[in-house]
Design a protein around this nucleic acid. Structure first.
Lengths: 339, 339
DNA sequence: TCAAGATATGTTACCGGTAACATTTTGTTC
DNA sequence: GAACAAAATGTTACCGGTAACATATCTTGA
């Protein structure tokens, strides 16, 4: 199990170590005969180039850093899968880190990645202001944002058209005849939270409906957040007939709250989620949700970052905005209206 | 944004580069005065040691490889989170790779990790025979298995007592009075599949019940697998009264199949899953499931592998078997019997 | 006060690749 | 077959750390 080096191979093949290096790198400046001879020795000895030595001398580690809010969240897990598949295909490895959406942890993740020596970083969970990330971009370090973007920096990103998704969902509720539509939105210091809120507002406005402040609650993108917010909404004298949620988790929380108040979905309250994660179709009440191409966002992000890393002077910016699609299930009461 | 090296710092501080190296590595062989002086220069210049150079010379990359079947599966995502948190804490980074439970892809993942230069590898999804992994272990490469173990190699692992989990679940069904208990088990070329099947069989045996071959179906650990298997079971003349599933996904598939056949859970068929993933409590029928400490398995695995990596001659094996716990919800009909 | 040992600092070599340039071999043309 | 260009191969240096050993400085006690 001894580890061989370039020079070992060279000696065994009776050539200089540079010739071996050239063979390894498919440099055309090697004759076919020599190439074959060297290749044979390589396989015979089972020689494997030392990744660390190579990374050292080339200043490239073939490592991508991925900062997610929480990898155990299925949404992030799916993005991660998209990222990893594409990275693998392109010869890169992915190291990941969970930021828990905290600026401090995000900064710690960045430091950690930098120490590890990644060639570029992908972020899925930046807030609209994220100093650690903005600094990185300012320094010219390869960065791609996925899912959420920064307010200031107009940099490479791959996101969903959240405004449109939310607009479409609200329109759908309006078309079903609901007038009293509430929104439990994710925090608007995230672009996902803000844009989804704006889409909802615009749809109301376009239908000449006033938005009622007591119908809009901002909370965390979690079932707990949705639960608390829904308890408040459902306790209102003038209870909303429909609730649009900032993501599916919030909607799951709403289901819990409705069950707790003895209300049924969609008869008493219609419900729409966002993201269409795998479980939207498996939850107690099958959830209507705005579907986005999660896996694809990840794989596109990798293409962009590798592009950025490998071309020396990339003088343009990649901005990819994918269109979402409303997936209609029982929670919005569509089937009731069809009858 | 120029990158400084050890020697730059040394020159600026008026010492030799080795002194700087010693300061960096907290080597006690540096006087307090010098240490302070050097430290000051380091912060002034914003010097950061070159991770790649360090990895090269120390032959350690502080990188752990994680091979999961599919990171987008919430079970794996949660293990991953446990792994990453602990690794971060211990100064390691984690690169991951999805094997899709295929031997070929597993081998490709291993190669990929080796090329990247990881210091050790964690596997969550080995089959009972997994040549690529067995070879790695035989060569003395640091490996820890999580969740599933190999049949042959008796190596470091962290698993759940799957036999006990399944035994307990079956016992529970028996206690509720069910006699016709079927099992839709995961493939038994995985230790998780095999051990869970054995637990079920043992529980029947201990209750002097014959196991009926038509009541045991092996399938993939997926909702699709569960769906197909359940269709077959529910179409039997002598339909089972209860079904124990190899994991929660299989159980979700059973729910779909039951719905399709117009049968209700638990009134017509009782149902128990395995793993108690986050959605067990949120599915259409709240699922009784065998809960295992997923996150903890991950973090324990990291402790073991770091131990293996950092101690030169580890002469003992780590075997951690965690006890599962049955979480009772509506799908097994417990509430019906309580009345 | 000075030798001996401990402590602090410095010198040199090396890890295993790649870049850049030097040299040798081969091939082409007249 | 001489002359020269092109192709193939070799030589040397270097990347930025750490190990091992050498040297210088500081203690301490007889």
């Amino acid at each position: 199990m001894k580890k061989y080096t370039l020079r070992d191979v060279a000696k065994a093949a009776g050539v200089s170590h540079m010739t071996v290096s050239r063979v390894l790198n498919n440099n055309p400046r090697v004759s076919a005969t020599t190439r074959e001879k060297v290749q044979k020795v390589i396989t015979e000895l089972g020689y494997e180039p030392d990744a660390r030595a190579r990374a050292f001398v080339t200043k490239k580690s073939q490592l991508l850093g991925l900062v997610v809010s929480d990898i155990s969240n299925p949404f992030n897990a799916e993005i991660s899968r998209g990222i990893e598949d594409k990275a693998f295909e392109m010869g890169y490895s992915v190291i990941f880190c969970s930021s828990d959406e905290s600026p401090q942890r995000t900064e710690a993740c960045v430091k950690h990645m930098l120490r590890t020596g990644v060639d570029g970083m992908i972020f899925t969970s930046v807030r609209l202001k994220e100093p650690a990330v903005e600094k990185l971009i300012a320094e010219g370090f390869p960065v791609v944002l996925v899912n959420r973007k920064l307010s200031s920096s107009d940099y490479h990103y791959v996101i969903c058209n959240n405004f449109l998704g939310s607009y479409t969902a609200t329109k759908h509720l309006l078309k079903l005849g609901y007038k009293k539509i509430a929104m439990i939105s994710g925090y608007s210091n995230f672009s996902t939270g803000l844009d989804r809120l704006k889409g909802y507002q615009k749809a109301l406005e376009d239908n000449s409906l006033l938005q009622r402040s007591e119908y809009v609650i901002e909370t965390s993108f979690s079932a707990e957040g949705g639960f608390e917010a829904a308890k408040a909404l459902l306790a209102l004298k003038d209870r909303p007939e429909a609730i649009l949620c900032g993501n599916d988790y919030i909607a799951f929380g709403v289901m819990d709250a409705a069950e707790g108040s003895g209300l049924s979905i969609p008869e008493d309250v219609a419900l729409i989620g966002f993201d269409d994660t795998d479980f939207a179709a498996r939850s107690r009440i099958k959830l209507t949700s705005v579907s986005q191409k999660i896996y694809e966002m990840g794989s596109i992000a990798v293409q962009i970052i590798v592009d950025t890393i490998e071309r020396k002077n990339l003088d343009y910016e990649h901005k990819v905005v994918l269109n979402p699609k409303l997936i209609i299930r029982e929670s919005c009461g569509y089937h009731l209206h069809k009858k």
